[in-house]
Amino acid sequence: MLALNHEEAVTSHEATASPSRKPSIVDVLSANKIYADGTEALAPVDLSIAPGEFLTLIGPSGCGKSTLLKLVANLIDPTDGRLQWWRGGFDQVGGEGRRLAFVFQDATLMPWARISSNVSLPLDLAGVPSAQSKPRVAEALKRVGLEGFENRYPRQLSGGMRMRVSIARALVTNPDLLLMDEPFGALDEFTRNRLDSDLLALWWERKLTCVFVTHSIYEAVFLSTRVVVMAARPGRIYRVMEIDEPQPRGEAFRNSARFADLCRQLSAWLADASLPSPVRASP
């Protein structure tokens, strides 16, 4: 986080000059996505992602939340409209590595590589010498509570631990923007709750900006500062919920009446968002 440009450093401890306006990290400007077969995965969407926020995309299947995330990740191009990343792209990053990290649905680890090599992959690909990457890998693993697992292979770890490795790999580049596509969807609820708490603590501690896709209402309410509810056919933004619950959030928030209210509200919105489509499992 040390090398942040002062313009984006509004959420950083190192912020020296506080700029008057908060430039957004990503602006989605009327971007839509129509796939080759003609299905409109995403109708034109406008969305600004502010630094330091935890934004969650939630909605029924086919609402384009993954498509929107991939657009933000620059994994796919919009059919029309455009996206703007800080000062025209995240290529010019200098020595401090990339600014964008993506955590997939699966841990997506290289089974042939030890945990340390898996975590250091983004640094290795960027040509960071191992003398520099080693302490960063160790630090990232420590952050996710996996010290001492450097020399294990992915298959020796549980599903939850593999997901932690995946997050460590995302953190090792010191990203400004962390994109996560249903990262804990395949885990049991207990593990998921623990990882949610850890992720939230990490986000708060490191002043990250997160865009998170989930199916879980509880996860969305617990984690987010802003929840974007999306509707399907065509995929579009249906409603936005701001959650100003102070940080750090803990079990107390999970068990509070407010949490239950927010979940009920979000659930109602999701039900509305799902209405037009005839086949739809209840969330």
Partner: peptide
Amino acid sequence: DQGLANLFRMNRAGRTATLLRLRIPSAL
């Protein structure tokens, strides 16, 4: 693995790096 291929692409891995670090180990 498609996920790993995406990961390499997102990290701007070159053809050689992808071959050495991804394709060959996958093929072993």
